[in-house]
Nucleic acid binder design. Structure first.
Length: 332
DNA sequence: GACGCGTGGCT
DNA sequence: TAGCCAAGCGT
């Protein structure tokens, strides 16, 4: 695995070739449940705006969310900010050097803690992400249902046993990167390229001839559907009314058009004499929910301040942290 | 243990 | 097309 990574793995991503915990940590948070291609631009912008953990800790939360806008899973951004502040306050601005301590910080769970500790400090700890679950369940022909946390724990224990045993400062970063590279480029979910795999001769699933039978996951998320009405209020001078989303909930902490559960509730929230214009509804798909969004347009006097929120000029709102569908809607 | 949390790409 | 899937975590 280590040898293969050197010559066939990914070695030029912007968060590689450094052991700076700030850069590694930032990339690992952004990469949670998010593909490399989606992260690249965000990582560069974020790093040039916040060059170290103290700069991030000192920033307003709105600035952090604005840079995260469009990347999704916004609790990551709120926890990232809180984590930076704790690194400064609890650890004097230096990230702790063990997975156990890293895990006490907000947004850093067991897998991310292992990633930072192995990449930066060569600690012998196992990441456990989607790549590892797929690669190891195949290598070991582990057919138990990973919907059960007890079975996940068994596989994670195997992951620890298979870690390198020596020269950890060099081998651990290489191994951690390698197992992810194999999962992302060779041991693919549908069409694994077993002939290119460096552990093919050790792989029980490859011997069985049906590697795609692993991993076994019965957990199928139940999807729901919801209709929301968006108050798209514009002032006579062109400003738009936005309010900050509550925590918790979808898009928590972001700026958004006022959201209502029905058209009647929306109509009741604006002056009775207002002329409402129903715009084209559109679908926005989340992992667990289909959002049917119904924009309703209205023009109001710039002196109106009838609900929580504020007017934002056309030069200001693009700089805010907005949900992706709202940014697209306002851009039209 | 179950659920909520975004977005975009792929098949 | 309608699911899947992606460097998971917090509640």
């Amino acid at each position: 695995m280590v040898r293969w990574q050197k010559t066939h793995g990914r070695n030029t991503l912007p968060w590689q070739n450094t052991r700076d915990p700030y850069r590694v940590w930032l990339s690992e948070i952004m990469l949670q449940q998010t593909q490399v291609a989606a992260v690249l631009g965000y990582y560069e912008r974020f790093l040039s705006r916040f060059q170290d953990v103290r700069a991030l800790a000192a920033a307003p939360q709105d600035d952090v969310l604005a840079l995260w806008s469009g990347l999704g899973y916004y609790s990551r951004a709120r926890n990232l900010h809180a984590c930076a502040q704790q690194v400064v306050e609890r650890f004097g601005g230096e990230f702790p050097r063990t997975a156990q301590e890293l895990q006490t910080l907000p947004g850093i769970g067991p897998s991310t803690a292992a990633a930072v500790a192995s990449f930066c400090f060569g600690e012998r700890v196992a990441i456990f992400d989607g790549n590892v679950k797929r690669v190891l369940s195949r290598v070991l022909a582990y057919g138990e249902d990973l919907a059960s946390s007890a079975n996940e724990r068994v596989l994670w224990d195997h992951a620890r046993e298979l870690l390198p045993a020596r020269e950890l400062k060099e081998s651990m970063p290489r191994y951690t990167q390698g197992i992810m590279d194999i999962g992302a480029t060779v041991c693919l979910p549908r069409n694994p390229s077993c002939l290119l795999c460096p552990v093919q001769s050790d792989c029980a699933a490859a011997r069985e001839g049906q590697p795609q039978n692993y991993p076994v996951k019965t957990k199928k998320l139940k999807r729901t559907s919801e209709s929301l009405w968006l108050l798209h209020a514009r002032a006579d001078d062109g400003q738009v009314w936005l309010q900050k989303r509550p925590t918790p909930g979808v898009w928590a902490g972001l700026y958004c058009l006022p959201v209502f559960g029905s058209r009647e509730a929306l109509a009741a929230a604006v002056p009775g004499s207002s002329e409402l214009r129903d715009a084209e509804p559109f679908l926005h798909v989340l992992t667990h929910k289909d959002l049917h969004l119904h924009p309703v347009e209205v023009v109001l006097p710039a002196s109106w301040k009838g609900m929580a929120g504020a007017w934002f000029a056309g030069k200001k709102w693009p700089e805010l942290g907005l949900p992706s569908p709202i940014r697209k809607l306002l851009s039209r």
